[in-house]
Each structure stands twice: as C-alpha cells, then as structure tokens.
Design a protein around this nucleic acid. Structure first.
Lengths: 257, 257
DNA sequence: CGACATATTGATGGTAGTCAAACCTGGTGG
DNA sequence: CCACCAGGTTTGACTACCATCAATATGTCG
C-alpha cells in the first residue's frame, strides 16, 4: 500500500480520459435522480479537466476559496497543520467528490486541501450556480445538498473514530468507509480497489503514529481481514470489518443534523 | 465544576426571563448587522420559549428532525452513542446557538442532542424561512450562514484536538474555545463564566477517561491557569492557555471550506 | 438522614508514542 | 548496468500517556 503515481491517476486510465465525467456523474446520480439536461451540464463541466500533480495544494487554509471544483480522478485530502508541524487530516476526497464550495458568505477556507495522487479536476462554478436554483434544477440541487450532508456525516464518523475507538477499530473503520465510498463510484466492495494512501497519511488522518499504523495493518492482514497490493487493498471480510469498527452504512437518502 | 440545575438555567436568571431573546440576538448580531425588522422578528420568535429539563433529548439520531430551534438559555450537546455504550460528544450548544436545522433535503438527524442543564428554547422555523431569502433579509441570511460555518469550524477544531493533541492540550483548547464563545454572548473572557459540564461530559467530548480529565484539570489549577467554582470556571491566563492549546481565534468574519 | 451523582485519590497495566536502524522499491544518473 | 538516493515500510527496544479498577470523599437533593 504505497503511493503510486498512477492509481486512478491522471493520464493513465483510458476510461477516465474518454469519459472524464464518469465518476462525478455516478456520484451525483447516486444521490438524486438527474434530468437529461442536468446530465449534459455535468458532462460539459468535465469537458476540459485540469491536471494537477501529487502533493499540490488545491487551496490553503485562511486564503479565499478560489474556485469550487470536483475531483474527476485521483485522491486528495483536507487537512490542517498545527504550529509545531503536527498534521491532522480531516477527510479524503475521492473521484466524484466536490471541494472548495463555500458555506458562508465570504469564502475563506477553514482547511487546506492537498492532492495525494495526480488528479484531474473540473471547475463546478456553473453547476454550483444551478444547484442554488432548486426550482429549475431540482435533481442537481438535491444531489448537491446530499453530497454536502454526506461529507458532514463522514466528519462526524471521523470524530467518533478519533475520540472513542482503538487503533485497530479506527483503521478498520476507515477502510470500510472508503470501501463503501469506492463501491458507490464503481469499485466493488470486496475486490481489490485503489487506495493510494501512505501509512503516514493514514496516521495523520487517524491520530496515530506511522509505526503503530504499520503494526495494526499487519495484524489485519495476519487475521486475513484485508489484503494489500501496490496502491490497492482488498477487504476480504467487509462484514467482519464493519462489525469490528461498529460501522454504520450511510442512510440511503438525504440526511442532516 | 459540577452540574448545576440553575447555571443560566431556565427560570432562574431574571435577565433571561425578561429578555429571552438576549443571547440569540447577541449571537446573531455578532455575525452580521441586522435590520430593525429582523431584530423584531428575532424577538418575536423568542416570545414564548419552551422550557426543557436537564438530560432530555432535543432530537435523536436517525429520527426525522422535528423543529429547528435556538437555545435561549442553558447548555446542550450533540452526541452519538456507540453500540457498546461508549459515547462521543461532538460539540456543545450554548445560549444563542442554533440546532436541528436540516442541511440536506429529507431531514434525518445524524446526531442526537441532549440538554446538559435546564434550557429554554425558541422555535426558529419562521426565522429559518426568512434566512433562506437573502434578498429580503440579507442580514439574517448572512448571520445564519456564518453561524452554520462557525459550527462547522468548531467541529474541525474538535477533530484536531482529538487527533493530534494531548489530554492537557485538549482540555486547555476546549476551555479556551468555550471561553471565547461565551465572551461573544456577554460573559467576559478572564472572569468567572458558567461552565456546567461534569467531568464525565468533558471526558466524552475529549475522548478521555473521567479520571484523567480530573487529574489534568487539577494540573491546570495547580499551575494557576484556571480556577473553578460551582458550575463555573475562570480562565486566569487566557493567553497562556491559548498558547498551550495552539488555539486560533475564529476569523472575524464569514468563513467556509 | 440516606440515596445518588460527582469528584478525588491510589495502584496497576496496556495501548500507542518515540527513537533508531534496517530494509525495500522505484527512479536517477554516471 | 549498477551505484546511489529518496520515500516508504518494517522491526526492535524502550517509554509514557492514559485507561481501568477500586475505594474513598464530597456534595446535593428529596
């Protein structure tokens, strides 16, 4: 499980290049039914994706949010640095996920976002405007709201992991969560799926040390619960893992709190 | 620092009874300038507050969100229970804070909310409708958005606490954060302010054991950084505490990420 | 006063952090 | 082709933070 420049990377998967809107479309239509018109707008937005290398900041905490966007391929994460260099990752952005959409009025980023692999991104300014007109574009507006609610829900799960779970549970929980999210965009749960996370990244997300992440992953492998390869993982026993992690599959439909 | 049925409690502070909208008004107007009309609407919403005793659920995870509201007096918290009885508190609701406002379409609560003291609450259905019409009620709409962004920001801070800070830092950080929030609604930073949290509640928020919270609080007292009394605390050295906690005061104005 | 919740204290152990070194692996360049 | 390097992974030894268990105060309320 190590960083690979090509996992779902930009410029490597032909399927992605030919249909750059693929993941975004799957994700949004998984949240709400979209009209043909909305679909074509989504496709248009993805027409000329931007390519960004790994390790690049998409936006920076404290600075005005430049442009809202969507990840078409590749992974990124939202994070914050402490003054002494410690790092905390809040969540991961997978293909099809939205980022950089202001919540309040004056858009100042409360986190930074950094690419973990090469990514390709679409600007979503236009879609975002549409999503604010529920009357004209009900499907898009709904999908947008659900996407946002989902991200919020993941953040809550993250708090629970950090606050009340052991290292073993945390890792299981994260793997299952990512497994389900990947499942939603077309990577079947239980098969080998892309997981371009270094152990250091997992450590910074889960509030653990790299060493401990390593040992705990080994334990999961020894117990035949997971299997790793290059930059990908297979959840051999998704149910057992979910049990260990006290994982609750996200509700089928919209959500808030 | 122990639970007290009357800290800012319902029916005890005359100032609150006479001007039930006081805290909500301070909070909202601290986020955005409100017109006279908006002000009077806020006051009207608070005209007949509901009274709820301590330890009562305002809403429950997984159930439809009944009515959006605002806390006029008293404290509550948002939390989630794990299947084995462990508990994780996500954040605290202080006087003037909003709760139960749906993000997505179908309003299902992603957390539960429980009162920590007796509270009085106002229904905000009407204000919420207004906040959705930025053209007619720009101030309210803005204040609403900022309030929401602020809550989100607190959640991010909470993740950092849980993921990357020691018990000592976590407690300092929480106290400073609450100190600042109380300051914003009229309890001066550096003076004795209400803090009706049991050590168990702090433990469940900070991912620590009760025993360890107790010992860490004692350390802070020994070092003359804080002082406690009944259900209140005084941050003797707010700057030193902020330093310890790597606390960043929230940005003056709107925010998002 | 007695029942109950909360706070405090002591003793003990385990989970996870730290430090340090070795080991891969893929990429670079002589 | 191979030496070299950087980033990532793995291993071992040691430590410490914090959880757990248990018992005792302290306080509050009926």
């Amino acid at each position: 499980m190590k960083q690979s420049d090509m996992a779902i990377g930009a410029g490597s998967l032909r399927a992605v290049d030919r249909r750059p809107h693929e993941f975004l479309w799957r994700r949004l239509s998984g949240f709400a039914a979209l009209s043909d018109q909305e679909r074509s707008m989504v496709r248009q937005s993805c027409a000329a994706p931007g390519e960004v290398r790994a390790g690049v900041e998409l936006y920076v905490e404290g600075e005005p949010l430049a442009k809202p966007g969507a990840l078409l391929a590749g992974w990124a994460c939202r994070l914050r640095m402490l003054s002494d260099g410690r790092r905390q990752i809040f969540d991961f952005l997978l293909p099809g996920d939205l980022f950089g959409h202001p919540l309040g009025a004056a858009p100042v980023a409360t986190t930074s976002a950094v690419t973990l692999t090469p990514v390709s991104i679409a600007g979503t300014g236009c879609l975002w405007e549409m999503a604010r007109e529920p009357d004209r574009f009900p499907g898009l507006a709904c999908a947008w709201a659900v996407a946002q609610a989902r991200q919020e829900a993941c953040l809550l799960d993250h708090v629970v992991r950090l606050g009340r779970q052991t290292a073993y549970e945390r890792i299981a929980h994260l793997l299952v969560e990512l497994g389900h999210r990947l499942d939603e965009i077309g990577f079947p749960l239980g098969s080998f799926v892309p997981m371009p996370l270094t152990q250091e990244v997992m450590a910074d997300a889960l509030g653990l040390s790299v060493v401990h992440v390593n040992r705990t992953l080994q334990q999961l492998k020894r117990e035949r619960l997971i299997e790793t390869r290059a930059a990908s993982v297979r959840l051999i026993e998704p149910r057992a893992l979910a049990e260990i992690a006290d994982f609750r599959p996200p509700r089928r439909l919209p959500v808030s709190g």
